[in-house]
Simulated scan of single mutants.
Amino acid sequence: MKKILSVCAVFFTFLNLSFSQGILTASSFFKSVSENYAAIKDYEADVDIKAGNSFMKGKVSYKNPNLLRIDFSSPEEQVICFNGDLLTIYLPESAAILNQTVDNSNNTGANLATSQGLALLSRYYSPAYETGQNAVPLEEGSEEMVVNLILRRRNMSEAFSTIKLSILQSNMLIRRIEATTPQGETFTFDFRNYVLNKGISDQRFIYDPPTSANNYNNFLFSE
């Protein structure tokens, strides 16, 4: 579970994305995605996360440039919150609070929860169209049409060998992220029911976990 949640923290940092039409190359497409989504002030969306036989469901709140919160309905009461300085994950089943302080010298997934996050992703991964620029069904039988980008790592040190981004044709938002490790593990993030620019308060990203839970600091570097 800790591994899955760490991956969640990494990938939600890549959500300052958007889309524009008329792009001919995958690199230009990816650059435009980054530039346009940065204009979104905030959003909320439903999210489903799958890793192997593990499944999680919740609502994600994001505020530009680097505020993030996920409130889970499954597992119930589980929370991921990043306030710009501190990443906090509350695990109710374990009565545990995982904390990770973020600074410029700390090159972790949480550190990518900034306006520079996608630029870093672009630096370490090379984008390509999966089947071309034209939209295709999200999956067999689906009426949702997406443009698929495949990002391949530039060097062997990156945690994921490929990252697939599926961009909805209808509203130009990310519908699905599929990240695959060199060992063949796949983490899938499905996003639905986006609400953009609703004026989310900074207070939304202040989280006080239960005082009865045990604290574990700098968990990203712990065994």
Rank of each mutant, 00 (worst) to 15 (best):
N99R: 14
E44V: 09
N111I: 03
N104H: 10
A119E: 09
P92K: 02
V60A: 10
L87G: 04
N111D: 13
T101K: 14
S115A: 15
T88G: 07
G109Y: 06
N104Q: 14
A96E: 14
N83K: 07
A113V: 12
V79K: 10
K41E: 13
N111K: 13
T88K: 08
T88E: 10
D42G: 02
I70C: 05
N64W: 05
E76K: 15
L112D: 08
D103A: 06
S54D: 14
D71W: 05
S54N: 14
N106R: 14
S115N: 13
Q78E: 13
V79S: 02
P75H: 09
D71R: 10
T101M: 12
L118F: 13
K59V: 11
A110N: 04
E76V: 14
D46E: 15
N83L: 02
A96C: 12
Q116R: 12
N64Q: 10
S115I: 13
L87E: 12
Y90G: 06
S115R: 12
K57D: 03
M56G: 05
K59H: 00
D48H: 08
V47F: 08
N99C: 13
N104C: 05
Q116F: 13
Y90T: 06
A45S: 15
Q100Y: 00
D42P: 06
N53D: 14
F55A: 11
N106H: 11
K50H: 01
Q116H: 11
N107E: 12
I49L: 12
L67P: 00
L86T: 11
K41F: 04
T101I: 10
T101A: 14
L98I: 02
I80T: 06
C81E: 09
N64F: 10
S105V: 01
P92A: 03
A96M: 15
L118Y: 13
L68W: 06
F72N: 02
L87V: 04
T88V: 11
L87C: 10
L112W: 04
G117D: 08
K59R: 15
Q100K: 02
L98K: 00
D103V: 04
D71H: 07
E44R: 09
F72L: 11
K57A: 07
S54V: 12
E77F: 13
K57P: 01
Q116E: 15
P75S: 09
E93Y: 08
E76P: 00
G117R: 01
S94V: 01
S74D: 14
K63E: 02
A95K: 15
D71Y: 08
Q116W: 09
K63N: 01
